[in-house]
Deep mutational scan, measured.
Amino acid sequence: MGKSNSKLKPEVVEELTRKTYFTEKEVQQWYKGFIKDCPSGQLDAAGFQKIYKQFFPFGDPTKFATFVFNVFDENKDGRIEFSEFIQALSVTSRGTLDEKLRWAFKLYDLDNDGYITRNEMLDIVDAIYQMVGNTVELPEEENTPEKRVDRIFAMMDKNADGKLTLQEFQEGSKADPSIVQALSLYDGLV
Rank of each mutant, 00 (worst) to 15 (best):
G2C: 02
G2N: 02
S6P: 12
L8C: 09
V12G: 15
V12E: 01
V13E: 15
V13S: 10
E14K: 10
E15Q: 03
T17W: 00
T17F: 14
T17S: 07
T20Y: 02
T23G: 10
T23L: 06
Q28E: 09
K32Y: 14
K32L: 04
F34M: 12
F34I: 00
F34E: 01
I35E: 11
K36V: 08
C38V: 15
P39W: 15
S40C: 10
G41R: 08
L43G: 11
G47H: 06
F48M: 10
Q49P: 08
K53H: 00
K53Q: 06
Q54C: 04
F56H: 14
F56P: 06
F58H: 11
T62L: 03
F64Y: 03
F64L: 08
A65Q: 12
V71I: 03
V71F: 05
G78K: 10
G78R: 11
I80K: 15
S83Q: 01
F85N: 03
A88P: 13
L89M: 04
S90Q: 00
S93P: 11
R94F: 13
T96P: 05
L97M: 08
L97V: 04
D98A: 07
K100E: 09
L101I: 09
A104N: 00
Y108W: 00
Y108A: 03
Y108R: 03
L110R: 00
D113E: 04
D113I: 02
Y115K: 05
Y115D: 05
I116M: 02
R118I: 08
N119V: 00
N119Y: 09
N119T: 07
M121A: 01
L122V: 04
I124R: 15
D126L: 06
D126I: 06
Y129C: 06
Y129N: 05
V132Y: 00
V132K: 05
G133D: 07
G133V: 05
T135V: 00
L138K: 02
P139W: 15
E142F: 09
T144L: 09
T144K: 05
T144V: 12
P145S: 04
K147P: 09
R148V: 15
R148G: 07
V149A: 09
I152C: 14
F153A: 07
A154I: 00
M155Q: 00
M156R: 07
D157Y: 10
D161T: 14
K163V: 06
L164S: 06
T165N: 15
L166H: 11
Q170Y: 05
Q170K: 07
E171G: 08
A175V: 10
P177K: 12
S178A: 11
V180N: 14
Q181V: 04
A182R: 11
A182M: 02
L183K: 04
L185P: 11
Y186T: 00
G188N: 03
L189G: 15
L189H: 13
V190L: 11
